[in-house]
Design a protein around this nucleic acid. Sequence first.
DNA 1: AAGTATAGCATACAAATATACGGTTGTCAA
DNA 2: TTGACAACCGTATATTTGTATGCTATACTT
Lengths: 223, 223
Amino acid sequence: MRSELTEKQRRILDFIVECISDQGMPPTLREIAQHFGMRSVRSVQTHLEALERKGAIRRLIGKSRGIEVIGQARRRERGIPVVGQIAAGRPIPAVEDVQEVLNLDVWFGRDERPFALRVQGDSMIEAGILNGDLVIVQPQSMVQPGEIVVAIKENEATVKFFMMKENQPWLVPANARYRSMPLGEGQIVGRVVGVVRRVKHSLHNLQEILHRRETDGQARSAQ
Amino acid sequence: MRSELTEKQRRILDFIVECISDQGMPPTLREIAQHFGMRSVRSVQTHLEALERKGAIRRLIGKSRGIEVIGQARRRERGIPVVGQIAAGRPIPAVEDVQEVLNLDVWFGRDERPFALRVQGDSMIEAGILNGDLVIVQPQSMVQPGEIVVAIKENEATVKFFMMKENQPWLVPANARYRSMPLGEGQIVGRVVGVVRRVKHSLHNLQEILHRRETDGQARSAQ
DNA sequence: AAGTATAGCATACAAATATACGGTTGTCAA
DNA sequence: TTGACAACCGTATATTTGTATGCTATACTT
């Protein structure tokens, strides 16, 4: 759909999105004309008509700044495009096809008020949850076995797998160096629906992995 | 600052924020008047003047819909609160102290146009990047050893650790079952600055971890 | 050759919109 | 009482803005 757009039309659409993003509202026709050095509103008109015809925007008739960008890049002004393919040989990674726009609000249904919790420790490392990660928690008291949950036990919040053992609820870490424990008096706070991590640069991670591999290799050759 | 606002002024400010959030642009004076059943724009004028005087908004003179909401609650309409402590014994997990508001845009400086890429395979599993995860990629051609990078090699995008070996760039997986490979003709697309995962519910993960632990335990007792 | 889409120009006009000036009615503190 | 607000109404005016017409030129398709 967006591929049908002309270069000019695409640039105008980008400008509209940029305006919404930067100054909080769509531009007027004249602001668009001015930005592109056009001396006539008519030019902008035809472009907007084309954009509307191609389904890229919707226009609120009569309203000032009545331009609404349709599609994924809709109202949430900023998002990170999720690409399906990136092509080699392009100057800057050319976004081949934008599959969706990454946005936390949309991802984790914002309606039910989730919250984020910073993970301390490596008890869930085998589930891909590292020390320092943020887990997105959906508050709920009922959870299913196999779900990753946040529970409060002895006044401390912990992230663990949830499972039933002998009809009793248990909290199971994803790290062989930790032990499972019964939920007991603890209470389920919610279910982990997402993980967000900001990757920090440190040689440490790589070195640790290489080291582990070496020792692993030695162990194998020793056997 | 907001506490100085009148009830009416606060409601008008809320309406403005709501408009920006819902229809993507601030309201006109008349839209505000209509919403509150006022029959004169003048009333809205005085309210906006008061709001501006009290520092809640800024006005772009002459511009239609030229209202800009100032302050934290500005344009980032929605975010997920990151909590430091959640308390036991509260009806709904009481957010004790909100440390920050999770927002992808803020987290991964949006200015430099990062994009997201869905990871296929488990070659980075030891770095906590699982199959299906989204990695946030900051486009750049120069990277440091130890950084997780996205590279294109043989027309395929891969996520790997980057390192120098014998003065040559190498791509190193975080999974002992995969092999390192020289970058060779491949090219660096960018650096992984973040990981975002939507946790799917499946017993599989837990079962796999429990199974691994069992076999691990047997191996230990065998030694 | 005719039609259609793109990309411009210029101009006119009506509707939308912000702004300005003046007035009324309360409340509250000095 | 006076003064300073808050919260309204009404009206007038200038500006902004969307919409409507008409024109030129190029490229492409049928």
